[in-house]
Amino acid sequence: MDLNFQNFDNVNSTNEQSGAFGGNIGDRNNLVGSGASSSAPSGGVFDDAQSGTSTRKGNLFSFEYYQQFFDVETDQVLVLIVIKRLINSVVPTHRNYIQDFLQPIPDLWGPFWVSVTLVFSIGIFGNLAQFIENDGAKGSYGSDFRMVTSASTLIFLYVVIVPLLLYGLLWNRRSEMLHPYVDLVCLYGYSLAIFIPVTFLWIINMGWFRWALIFASVSLSGTVLARAIWPAVKNDVNKMIAFGTVATVVILHFLLAFTFKVYFFDSMHSIPPNL
């Protein structure tokens, strides 16, 4: 039987022209998974995070500038926010939270819902704690919805104003690592996540237990804040300002937790019912 062998040298070139994978192991551009991104929706703020580039469009006073920080998808929220950003905001590591978990693209979606959840958590569990500590005021105690407005005002001032003051300080000191204001807002927004389960545990009317929760929560999230801010101020010529900035960040975080405990949960002042 006569065997005729054909030359297949031009197969790869034909496949390349037709867009098919030519079977070359070294060619990783056409492997499974590399082309999936071409069919995925583009234009989202996290699309650039996957490529390692940051394309923040619009100016600071335009709607498009802030819209891009809320342009996320369900799977991206699960991976980038729930797993990386929420957990690492309460678990101190040797890594820098801003550089390793927020950049190049921060988001305002997570901090927004963390803040809103904390507001309602304080309103619900704070009223419940007041009810328990006052023994129901003999049937005359009512829910105080002013807790919601007070908590929202306090949290808004902390998440918006404190990062603004910190950004102004870094800008005034001409810091070598000037974090964008949005990054700082994102940092402080996620730092509140640890107080959500703490407000639930504060229902237990035990003074030492509530203080222990304050020191534990502030130690964890405060360490994350301090390690995120320290690289931006450590090279300041005035070391007193550098150490003072980090100390102020931790102290303000402690005062926030202390205010939550005293004003919304302690029974040292009985809030009248909202008739």
Rank of each mutant, 00 (worst) to 15 (best):
N7M: 07
N10C: 05
V11I: 13
S13C: 01
E16Y: 07
Q17R: 12
S18L: 15
N24K: 11
N24V: 10
G26N: 12
N29C: 06
N29Y: 10
S37W: 13
S39Q: 14
S39H: 14
P41D: 12
F46C: 15
S51E: 13
T53L: 11
N59H: 11
L60D: 10
L60V: 15
F61H: 07
F61T: 14
D75K: 09
Q76G: 09
V77R: 05
L80F: 11
N88D: 04
N88W: 00
P92F: 09
P92E: 12
H94T: 12
L108R: 02
W109C: 05
P111Y: 02
V114C: 02
T117W: 01
V119S: 06
G126P: 02
I132Q: 13
D135Y: 05
G136F: 10
A137C: 07
Y141K: 14
G142T: 07
V148A: 04
S150W: 04
A151R: 04
Y158N: 13
V159E: 04
P163C: 13
L166I: 14
L170P: 05
R173L: 14
H179N: 15
D183H: 15
Y188Q: 07
G189H: 08
L192I: 02
I196K: 07
T199C: 15
M206V: 14
F209N: 07
A212I: 05
F215T: 03
T223A: 10
A226W: 03
A228G: 08
W230N: 09
M240H: 04
A242Q: 06
T248V: 11
I251C: 03
H253N: 08
L256H: 01
Y263L: 08
H269C: 04
P273G: 08
